[in-house]
Design a protein around this nucleic acid. Structure first.
Length: 307
DNA sequence: AACGCAGCCAACCGCAACGTA
DNA sequence: GTACGTTGCGGTTGGCTGCGT
């Protein structure tokens, strides 16, 4: 049984997006929010497949995208994350606000790989080029070496031979990844189901009842999925980890008396505070609310990661 | 100016994961 | 349990651009 195509190819545009198409997509998402990519093109009057719309939005049109060259700090962070995670571009992108997985992937392939090779480091294994592969300090079961990575939701890491420094870095990384996938930090940009009158108004204009139900249905799916991810994204570290806090304020101290671990935890909170913002509806994100946030957003205790 | 080449990046494709009927 | 629909991810490609000859 073959898979049905993701969209009707006969009547879809391909190739570069025009300004008009961009504007249509932005306008539609400004009003209706993300989600339901399958039906979006038709609803927005675009002759594109949903996948194409999603890609265009995520990689190019999203209002919070950072433009311009990668900084040295971003460079080093990418290298470090890649050494720990392999080609998990979406996870890596989650640690670089304003950068997309595609952008990072392209940057890796065009710049970072070469940079590492010039340093005498194998960009896949992050080990010296002339060194035979032996025990890695940190390997993933899904992405090590040239093996094709799978899209497993559960990534198991084995750090048995990791150095104390690596362990600290991994702790920090894990805490941030857990954070990303935690319930209030959905990886989706506008994940919440509208609950208030205001928000429903923001997202429902122009939709038929059926479309709206479908739209909400997908929001439910997203929520369930992210909740599922929250449970499933488990790096299964074989080392003891500092407790991961769900609040943002670093008031409680870790049980560990280890000064380094405290410093790491502190650094982790600082990073988190930089990349986190209050969760708001699409209207507020895109500034279509005339002033401040709608009441639902104001009352919400939900926070999202801000890419 | 014309050509070839390399680099870059937006976009596409195929597949896996996951939910639902 | 299975078929199907939808979404997201990672690998790949095609076309544009800049540079050297």
């Amino acid at each position: 049984m073959g898979r049905s195509p993701c969209c009707e190819k006969a009547h879809t545009n391909k190739g570069a997006w025009t300004k008009e198409e961009d504007e249509r997509l932005i306008d539609y998402i400004r009003v209706h929010g993300e989600g339901c990519w399958r039906s979006l093109p038709k609803a927005a009057g675009l002759l594109r497949c949903g996948k194409s719309c999603r890609l265009r939005w995520i990689n190019y049109l999203r209002p919070d995208l950072k433009r311009g060259n990668f900084t040295d700090e971003e460079d080093e962070l990418i290298i470090k994350l890649h050494s720990l995670l392999g080609n998990k571009w979406s996870v890596i992108a989650g640690r670089l606000p304003g950068r997309t997985d595609n952008e990072i992937k392209n940057y890796w392939n065009t710049h970072v790989k070469r940079k590492l090779i010039s340093r005498g480091i194998d960009p896949q294994t992050h080990r010296p080029l002339n060194e035979k592969t032996t025990t890695a300090t940190a390997t993933t079961t899904t992405t090590t070496g040239a093996a094709k990575p799978t899209a497993n939701r559960v990534t198991q890491l084995n750090f048995e031979n990791a150095s104390p420094q690596s362990i600290s870095e991994i702790k920090l990384l894990k805490s941030n990844i857990d954070f990303k996938y935690s319930k209030n930090f959905n990886s989706s940009f506008y994940p919440r189901k509208p609950e208030s009158v205001e928000e429903t108004n923001c997202s429902s204009s122009g939709m038929t009842t059926d479309e709206e139900q479908n739209h909400h249905h997908h929001h439910h799916q997203e929520e369930r999925k992210s909740s599922h991810e929250n449970q499933e994204i488990n790096l299964e570290l074989t080392i003891g980890l500092a407790p991961i806090r769900s609040e943002l304020t670093p008031t409680s101290s870790s049980n560990s008396a280890d000064a380094e671990s405290k410093l790491q935890q502190q650094a982790s909170y600082q990073i988190l505070e930089k990349v986190v913002t209050r969760g708001v509806c699409t209207c507020c994100q895109l500034g279509s609310q005339r002033s401040e946030l709608c009441s639902n957003c104001q009352n919400s205790n939900v926070f999202y990661r801000y890419y």
